[in-house]
Computed example of a mutant assay.
Amino acid sequence: MFKKLLSSIGIGSATVDTKLTKAQYVQGETVEGVVDIRGGNVEQHIDEIYLALVTTYIREIDDKKFEEKAVLARYKVSDSLTIGPNETKTIPFQFALPYDVPVTVGTSRVWLQTGLDIKMALDPQDRDYLAIEPHPLVEAFLEAVRQLGFRLRHVQCEQAPRYWQRRLPFVQEFEFKPVSGPFKGRLDELEAIFFVSEHGVEVILEIDRKARGFAGLLSEALDMDETLVRFTYGPSDVASLPQRLANAIGRHS
């Protein structure tokens, strides 16, 4: 009875350890691994084993910024089962990463939270961080802006305005600075948001023009120096993407 009481507060209870076949993935790629469960001092009934894909984003309230957690997806690994004292069980799993999982650059972090639902007990949990690379079509865009003389300066997940929200309450914003090429001296910065799907990418660009002269300074003071451009592209557009991007930026700079 005393052992059961200790298990109910997490002492001598079952433990969980998730092992992935690798730690680095691309948006939309399939993740594979196993969940290892080791029983504690007493037999325990586990209602469910789950994996939660989690990240954080910045939320602004009254000009103050707060970090919020967001569950991108939740995956059920196993139905109810019983684990005996010191018994071990290994349960394999696989799932496809969502296309909107953030790329882990800048301040963005993504992890898998593994949990065992055990009634009347402190649920054991395990956290495994993932390295998420851009989808090939997003990588093609990043290469295109590099060719145009932009350098990636900042990446952050931020709460999105309602009209930009899709499945999630935030977007990942990529901020670029022109350091060479035709747009150096013409733009302050270029910001991009990507909505990736299995068919292609929708990108929203915010083109921040550099103030030039009195009219430019006035526009900047009135927040009129930023232009939003929206376009889509797919695998067949990759070769022409640098020129297409240059034309879009050029029209608004």
Rank of each mutant, 00 (worst) to 15 (best):
R109L: 10
R109G: 04
R109P: 00
R109K: 14
R109V: 13
V110D: 03
V110K: 05
V110M: 02
V110H: 02
Q113I: 01
T114C: 06
T114P: 04
T114S: 15
T114R: 03
G115S: 14
G115F: 01
L116S: 00
L116Y: 08
L116I: 03
D117V: 11
D117C: 00
D117W: 03
D117Q: 07
I118C: 06
M120S: 11
A121P: 03
L122G: 00
L122T: 11
P124T: 12
P124W: 08
Q125L: 07
D126E: 12
D126P: 01
R127V: 14
R127I: 14
D128Y: 03
Y129L: 02
Y129E: 11
L130Q: 04
A131L: 10
A131M: 09
A131G: 08
A131I: 14
E133K: 10
P134A: 11
P134W: 04
P134R: 02
H135S: 08
H135Q: 05
P136E: 08
P136F: 12
P136Y: 07
L137W: 13
L137M: 06
L137T: 09
E139P: 01
A140Y: 00
A140T: 10
A140W: 01
F141E: 04
F141C: 05
L142E: 06
L142K: 12
E143A: 10
E143G: 02
A144C: 11
A144S: 14
A144G: 09
V145Y: 00
R146I: 00
Q147L: 05
Q147M: 12
L148S: 05
G149K: 11
G149F: 09
F150T: 00
F150V: 01
R151L: 11
R151I: 05
L152I: 13
L152A: 09
L152F: 02
R153L: 11
R153W: 04
R153M: 09
R153H: 13
H154K: 11
V155Q: 08
V155F: 01
Q156P: 01
Q156E: 15
C157Y: 00
C157Q: 07
C157A: 15
Q159P: 01
A160D: 06
A160P: 10
R162D: 15
Y163F: 08
Q165Y: 07
Q165E: 15
Q165F: 07
Q165K: 14
R166E: 13
R166T: 15
R167C: 00
R167S: 14
L168E: 13
L168R: 10
L168W: 07
L168K: 13
P169V: 13
P169I: 04
P169R: 05
V171Y: 05
V171P: 02
V171F: 04
V171D: 10
Q172M: 12
E173D: 09
E173R: 15
E173F: 00
F174H: 06
F176H: 06
P178W: 02
P178R: 02
V179G: 02
V179A: 04
S180W: 01
G181E: 07
P182Y: 12
F183C: 00
F183H: 05
K184Q: 14
G185K: 10
G185E: 03
G185P: 07
R186V: 04
R186W: 06
L187S: 04
L187G: 03
L187A: 14
D188G: 08
D188E: 15
